[in-house]
Design a protein around this nucleic acid. Sequence first.
DNA 1: AAAAAGCATTGACAAAAATCAAAGGTTCTT
DNA 2: AAGAACCTTTGATTTTTGTCAATGCTTTTT
Lengths: 189, 189
Amino acid sequence: MPGYLKKYLTQKMVISNEELENILVCFKKLQSKKNQILIHPNKICKHLFFVQKGCLRVVCTRDDGQEWTRQIAIENDFITIFPSFLEQTISRSYLQTVEASDVFYISYSNFKKLNNIVPNWREFYTSILEQTYVNSIKRIEKLIAMDGKHLYEDFKINHPELLKRLPNKISASYLGISQETLSRLKTKK
Amino acid sequence: MPGYLKKYLTQKMVISNEELENILVCFKKLQSKKNQILIHPNKICKHLFFVQKGCLRVVCTRDDGQEWTRQIAIENDFITIFPSFLEQTISRSYLQTVEASDVFYISYSNFKKLNNIVPNWREFYTSILEQTYVNSIKRIEKLIAMDGKHLYEDFKINHPELLKRLPNKISASYLGISQETLSRLKTKK
DNA sequence: AAAAAGCATTGACAAAAATCAAAGGTTCTT
DNA sequence: AAGAACCTTTGATTTTTGTCAATGCTTTTT
């Protein structure tokens, strides 16, 4: 049943069929409508999600109520409230579906157990970590050095599919600019 | 000789004396004056650094020549041009001393070998990765959601020692604002 | 110690971006 | 299908921030 996840794992790690099954049984399927909250704010994040179909985002809120998109996940991406999941601490951020989505999720305790059950798991996990960390470094470089116009141009070049797929409002909140500014940048040039 | 590094490692990982020695022999000592470039731009980053004494930063440059501080390391921090080090690819960023510094450094190939030589190394490495990734997530949250004033206030609260220690110019380039704006924020309130 | 280079501050101005508000267009709900 | 809710665009305005330039201060360098 978890077609994409199985495919994803076999592509990314060296693993026996038995080990693969040991991983897959830890994941449960969830189908969700649009705009549903899968991890609530001010809770400990207990699950890691894999997106089979659809789109999810991590939302962080400012004191004045404004909301910002810290992370976006589409097909074949993992997503969770990472700081909360890792340290099992409370977080103000929440995880929300942007589209109707099919996801697979694994609990924190089962996730931890995979280290013991599957020999190559740590290596796989570390590799994913490295990649997401590199991506976050690149995002930081852009956020400190670029103004709205350049952030938008860069987003259009590197994530054209997201720009088409996401509501304007969410793209703007991912870039750290207001939706009005994004709307103007889209038309101006 | 690598006093702090030895102390740091024994505190952070479970390790025998022999293993510890196997790690330490991979590191070489370097003493550097202020404003020296330890990893040059447009090169493959071949070393990972541990700061014994002093202060280093990763500088990224914009097309117009403006420079920004992507990362800062002081005593007991590791630092490198991570994307370049990890994938052994060319990077425009460079690593520079902010103060006269004593550092220990390890080559990429030796770093890779530690996975085989020291059983707990991967676990240790993963744990450092997790922590730095969490820190980068927090920085992203701030950069997308906060304006200059709030970024400065936050920096003052969370890194008061850095604010005192760093030249204004570098603090500003770390926060993604101009030094004039930082100077005004410092006096205004 | 003097000169030079670099850094911080301040003012004036320009550019960028946020905010507020209104209108028209979608999409969702019933 | 009608109404509601939401999203997008656009205009007007204010706020924030960047840029340029000048000055005084500090730190290097010679």
